[in-house]
Design a protein around this nucleic acid. Sequence first.
DNA 1: TTGTAGGCGTTATCAC
DNA 2: GTGATAACGCCTACAA
Lengths: 343, 343
Amino acid sequence: MMASGKPTINDVARIAGVSKKTVSRVINRSPLLHVDTRARVENVIAEMGFVPNPQARALALRRNFLIGMIHDNPNAQTVLNVQQGMLEGLRDTEFELIVRPVKRHSPQMLDDVRRFLERQRPHGVLLMPPIAENEALAELCRDVGCRYVRMGSAALDAPDRTVASNDGEVVGLAVAHLVEQGHRRIAMIAGPDGFLSAAERRKGFDAALAKARITLPSDFVAKGGYTFESGIAAADLLLDLDQPPTAIFAANDEMAAGALHAARRRGMNVPEDLSLIGFDDTGLAAHLWPPLTTVRWPGLMLARLGVRKLIADTFDESDPDDDSWLYESQLIHRDSVAPPRAR
Amino acid sequence: MMASGKPTINDVARIAGVSKKTVSRVINRSPLLHVDTRARVENVIAEMGFVPNPQARALALRRNFLIGMIHDNPNAQTVLNVQQGMLEGLRDTEFELIVRPVKRHSPQMLDDVRRFLERQRPHGVLLMPPIAENEALAELCRDVGCRYVRMGSAALDAPDRTVASNDGEVVGLAVAHLVEQGHRRIAMIAGPDGFLSAAERRKGFDAALAKARITLPSDFVAKGGYTFESGIAAADLLLDLDQPPTAIFAANDEMAAGALHAARRRGMNVPEDLSLIGFDDTGLAAHLWPPLTTVRWPGLMLARLGVRKLIADTFDESDPDDDSWLYESQLIHRDSVAPPRAR
DNA sequence: TTGTAGGCGTTATCAC
DNA sequence: GTGATAACGCCTACAA
């Protein structure tokens, strides 16, 4: 009767003179349908402005039209960047974004996520780094039958469940840039243990030094925790060395900002007294003084690709990008790198 | 039979030896229920690990267990801050957070939101500034029968639909701080027209100067667009004056960062040559050099309070904070303010 | 205080 | 190809 409220599938069926099921078939693009019937029903749908009720579909299908974002990333800019990419990928679809932060170290983390997945039954979830590296979490998703895609700094899973960047290679480019500028004493502020991104960036760093035939004492790599404060501490360590570095590569921008802070605090100028390269390019980098040369992590593009994979089965034609999973990070040149001061 | 899958309300009813409706009453905390019955049913629920299916409830109640965040705020840090506050307010409830960015200037913005609200039927939405100031949007929410709370820099609506900060007053404190340090030539980089936050901060600035009996030429207020770049431009304008200011208050941190950038570019040191105060304290401020003295906007607290208001009716006891709607911004002292250089 | 019948709007089953 | 009929799991009448 639709006297009040939106038209339902029943209204459409009645007016089009067909059964509910036929309307349902039109909505769901069933292939076995007479073209005329389809056209007629589609007309009625358009005329009435009928929109299927997501709640009813969710109940019947036992699956919601929601895409979840599961993350434990401490960097706000990174998180929002990914979120924006997801929203772009979801634009003009029937899907909505639902955000679910988790506590990486909580013993109930897996239980929390399981409850979330079983209750909300999202259509799929995107796992952000670093929690994406958690095998148990991926297994849980498979277990409850929830689609997932993992984001990482290298492939973590099957291609249709992976989107990744090539961190190692690009760090190589960054180091090569420093070498070209004449730096030999190049230090690194590494990320924390147990993070794939940290390991990949470290590997790229080591490989690049080896390629440039540079051998440095082991204390030229200081470990940080991906935080501003840990960047200060690590940089202090490095700059206190008898033979301090002339350039520092930090495994993320927060730590690079910390290094900048540490340098200024002891009266050093960047890039005159110390060159600096960060990683992420999450907004902070461009707003520091001097603007930070850094590697741009393609989180937005990765996220967009990731959600497209998650909802690929709802499209008629498969996306040409379906089997690709890699986006290149790239070196962004700003003003924190210069040749080392002649001594 | 629940052989597979989770137990349903039917299973609980059968095992507890009551009707579905009685179980439903227990779930929904109906007051007219025998204590014994309730206890018995609650035991069975606990034993079976029964959790009501949100999709079914959504269909029956015509309302989802989702809290929406509607925003068009350009500042990533601010957005994430609010998001975190919302998640804290939602923690351990049955509600989930759903994110909905909108395009402020798009002519279809209202249609987009209407479609979103009518389709997803969220339990309620939090409107972030600046879109929260849009009267048509609030009216739309009322129209489709969706709860909402507006965040602002001053009260925008009825108390149960408002959470706000006292920007004006705190800006007064910030200016007073500069005056105490001996500054007389105090400029402002104001926010863009049409933003309540910009207007409030500007009012606070003017009032504070008046109170200190300081009269300044009108070009001591430069208008910015809340962006880093606009901060640079505005600061350049101010610093090019014949009698440039010795201190600048910027209506947000992004513009303050831009001002810092502009100052450094012309070889000025902060705070020695120029004192600087920002507004927001969204992470950027503490990581700049020098760490920025700024006003902390209590977005996280406001958001937390906001969602509690949205879901207040699902609790037994009303929150004691129910009728409060104000959180105080506060001045955070860091290192970007010093007495003016003697001339 | 509790139970029965029916509905929320969609999809699945299985005939025709 | 198409259409009755029964789920999906919960809630709101209304009755008892």
